[in-house]
Design a protein around this nucleic acid. Structure first.
Lengths: 335, 335
DNA sequence: GTGAAAGCGCTAACAC
DNA sequence: GTGTTAGCGCTTTCAC
């Protein structure tokens, strides 16, 4: 129950003023080498740690950033967040991770909470809609990943979803299938881009059955979703000649499709060929291992953290900096 | 670039003192209904939000808790953390999630950072060793999940790992295999309990080959780990009669074992039977789907958050409260 | 029922 | 090179 030791205490013990201790800690302003040693010794002896709340209040910055992620259970997002968090940790920022569960109400609540905590910056990943930073009172820099900001001063980092969709669709075409796009119901900039790439590649081969919307209420991995996918697959088989060629919106969805296909005794890639998107960790645990479009999460994480840190340090908005990152096809067992 | 509006501003605009505004916001102390309405209206109009840094500084509590997790990329942990975070969110606490990557140095750095941020409590999940809260200067309540605290005043919540190991080993025995335990190198209370359960069930059938240690440096899902597992499996096949019976320390490890077995053209569950531990989301994406020991993450998350909140609100240490949660076998396709 | 004032722990201007 | 002072935004005694 020992109360935490403060800068005043350190000052008193070392026989200097709090200001001097502060100078030593932050290594700014002038002080003698002798003072430095004296103070440092006391700090170490008492295991003193700066109270970041007080410091944050005083400096009007918290050295904390917030991340809004749509779904931590998705291995693509958890891997991405892990990398981002790691970047910030090495730059001495702490990170508050918020799982919005793709729920707009929860997201807004989180953003207000983060703002009240005086976060210095925000990373907002994907989700259903455009991100509208006008919910923010202060002007905190925002970097959006995979989700177009409505505010033109927010930075935007994204894989080239259009390109990825084109590559995937072409691969499906080359494998002599009639491609079908499976997506979860909802809108987002990445979804729209992929749909566009899909459509543009298919052109006259596009039919009303080419895009299949999966209910968003059924959670990834749940029996409900698998049931729904099974029904959709069975449906499709009645209408199309085998092999079916599926472009799945995400690896998670692809993984669920694989299990659904198994339930129907469809062989992959014999009866059914499938390409995912993300190259999430789960892709390598599927059987057959999932052919997919690789997103470079390391690059995304790096770009996002660099841009945000730059914006925070220069105390300005993220200069509407758009970064588009290339993707590529990873051939595994499902095509 | 508008500066954030403060309680003083609200006070000035409403024509009352900051003290009164504070009373209204926190609904404590006395004030007239008329004042309440007046102030509330101004707060809403200006979208005022309490600065939690200042409040935290003043009240010596931050309404923030920290979670130390060994590996966010592991679907068991990400699912667990997601549930914990959700619990705290609904109780108006925010959560700083820290991925220690099972690195003790990083973990200590995180704990110091969290302490400097004046977190009101800490949840520490699993990891390599016992958790030693003596690195903490202040007396902040700690709840350990799956990891025995060395400090007797810290609470401990855990699945019954011993029981789980017994159940798994018995199932393997009943399937007429000679059980082998695969684990990642390292110590932890959960590892030790499972080993004990394994040994106690095996008794005289225990041999020097019964426990296989996998190098901890090779990351889950990596090619290096799979290579290592392949070597180990091949080795084992030379010595033992089929079918082999593997009790894998975690579902992640089990999943890697399944892919390694595939590379060796071993059929599961024909040549090789395998039982995992956790019932992580990944278990249902394996092929065959993984038979495993189910840990009740919802219960763990609930127990952990309740105990921590209780300790924080009553401003005392978590009363050395040990909660052991039952586990059970989930039969799927690998046994 | 409300206001004035002090102080949480820190840093930055200003003095000397 | 170092100390004094003010103030970040909030809550909470203590007056009245």
């Amino acid at each position: 129950m020992t109360k935490k030791i403060s800068i005043k205490d350190i000052a008193a013990i070392s026989g200097v003023s709090p200001a001097t201790v502060s100078r030593v800690i932050n290594n700014n302003g002038r002080f003698s080498e002798q003072t430095r040693q004296k103070v440092t010794k006391v700090i170490e002896k008492y295991n003193y740690q700066t109270n970041t709340l007080a410091k944050g209040l005083r400096m009007q910055k918290s050295n904390t950033i917030g991340i809004i992620v749509p779904d931590l259970a998705n291995t693509f997002f958890s891997a991405l967040v892990e990398k981002i968090e790691n970047q910030f940790f090495s730059k001495n920022y702490s990170t508050i991770i918020c799982d919005s569960k793709r729920n707009i109400t929860k997201e807004i609540a989180y953003i207000q909470m983060l703002e009240a905590k005086s976060v210095d910056g925000l990373i907002v990943i994907s989700g259903q809609k455009m991100f509208d930073s006008s919910t923010l009172n202060r002007a905190v820099p925002v970097v959006c990943i995979d989700r177009k900001p409505s505010n033109k001063t927010d930075a935007f980092i994204s894989s080239n979803h259009y390109q990825g969709a084109v590559i995937a669709t072409q691969a499906l075409l080359e494998a002599k299938t009639q491609p079908v796009l499976f997506k979860v119901h909802g809108q987002s900039s990445s979804i729209n881009d992929r749909i566009q790439g899909f459509k543009d590649t298919l052109q006259q081969n596009l039919t009303t059955d080419s895009i299949i919307d999966i209910s968003a209420t059924n959670q990834a991995g749940s029996n409900e979703r698998r049931l729904e996918l099974r029904t959709q697959l069975r449906n499709l088989m009645g209408k199309q000649t085998l092999p079916l060629g599926i472009f799945a919106y995400s690896d998670t969805l692809a993984a669920d499709l694989i299990t659904a296909a198994r339930d129907l005794n469809l062989s992959i890639p014999g009866d059914l060929k499938i390409i995912g998107f993300d190259d999430a960790p789960i892709a390598k645990y599927c059987y057959p291992e999932l052919t997919t479009i690789h997103q470079d999460t390391s690059k995304i994480a790096l770009a996002a953290s660099q841009q945000l840190i730059d914006a925070m340090q220069n105390n300005r908005q993220t200069a509407a900096n758009n970064t588009i990152i290339n993707v590529h096809l990873v051939k595994r067992g499902t095509v």
